[in-house]
């Protein structure tokens, strides 16, 4: 089966739906997002149901995830970060399970679509900006001018800082989208070699095992990086550097 390595990213409408000229069909992407929400919620609910002093394996994993995000929020957001813990945790779990479920053969990886990752990054960016302005008012503008720099440098520094600030959602979304897309394309291309090479296909097959393990690592690291950068942006908005 010589399939196109890009075929796995095709959006297929499952329930076609159009409201006021907008195509809001229920697609395979939406289906896998729903599955991700259901699976991650069920996992957390069921694993901590026993609430044992001696945790089961599932409970240990759930507590590990909770601790990872709790430490992340405490280390990177600093004081006043606790109210945002639920949001960061939800974000982390959604991206993590989306990435991991994307590794299931035949599934769809919604995090490999820039539309999805950019939407998440844009929400974070807008929310962080609104939080910053609500908390500091006009003092929020000092974020764009380093403390102690000579005043005349403002002409150069403010546009640079502004563009740097605006590039945050772009780099945040492109990073996860590029990592996930590249990983899945490589998997498909190497898998194509296995079939094409016949008996010698054993060589790329062995490589494929290693790459699969590597992709699982990427899936976890990218979810972690996405959440930690959201924390850093939140820190900037709350404390202005």
């Amino acid at each position: 089966m010589a399939s196109n390595p890009m075929d796995q990213f095709t959006i297929v409408p499952i329930v076609p739906l159009e409201v006021a000229g907008f195509d809001i069909s229920f697609t395979n992407s939406a289906l896998w997002m729903t599955i991700t929400v259901v699976v991650s919620s069920l996992f957390l609910l069921l694993s901590i149901r026993s609430r044992g002093t001696i945790p089961t394996r599932g409970q240990m994993v759930a507590e590990m995830m909770y601790n990872t995000v709790a430490n992340m929020v405490r280390d990177n957001v600093g004081s006043g970060g606790q109210p945002y813990f639920p949001f960061i945790f939800t974000l982390f779990m959604f991206v993590l399970f989306g990435n991991l479920l994307g590794m299931v053969p035949g599934s769809f990886t919604f995090t490999s679509h820039i539309a999805v990752t950019f939407a998440m990054a844009a929400i974070i960016f807008i929310a962080v900006t609104v939080i910053g302005i609500a908390k500091h008012g006009t003092r929020f503008a000092t974020l764009f001018f380093p403390h102690g720099a000579p005043l005349w440098t403002a002409v150069i520094l403010i546009p640079i800082e502004l563009v740097s600030y605006l590039s945050r959602p772009v780099s945040l979304s492109v990073r996860i989208f590029a990592n996930l897309t590249v990983g899945h394309v490589i998997l498909k291309v190497i898998a194509g070699f296995v079939v094409a090479l016949g008996v010698f296909g054993i060589v790329p097959l062995a490589g494929l095992v290693a790459i699969t393990a590597f992709e699982f690592m990427i899936a976890v690291i990218q979810a972690y990086v996405f959440a930690i950068l959201s924390c850093i942006y939140l820190h900037d908005a709350l404390h202005l550097h």
Binding site: V163, S164, L166, S167, R168, V170, S171, V174, R175, A178, V225
Partner: peptide
């Protein structure tokens, strides 16, 4: 990560 940071600035 660093490459994306650089490109994002230029792109914006």
């Amino acid at each position: 990560r660093i490459a994306v940071d650089l490109v994002a600035g230029v792109a914006v």
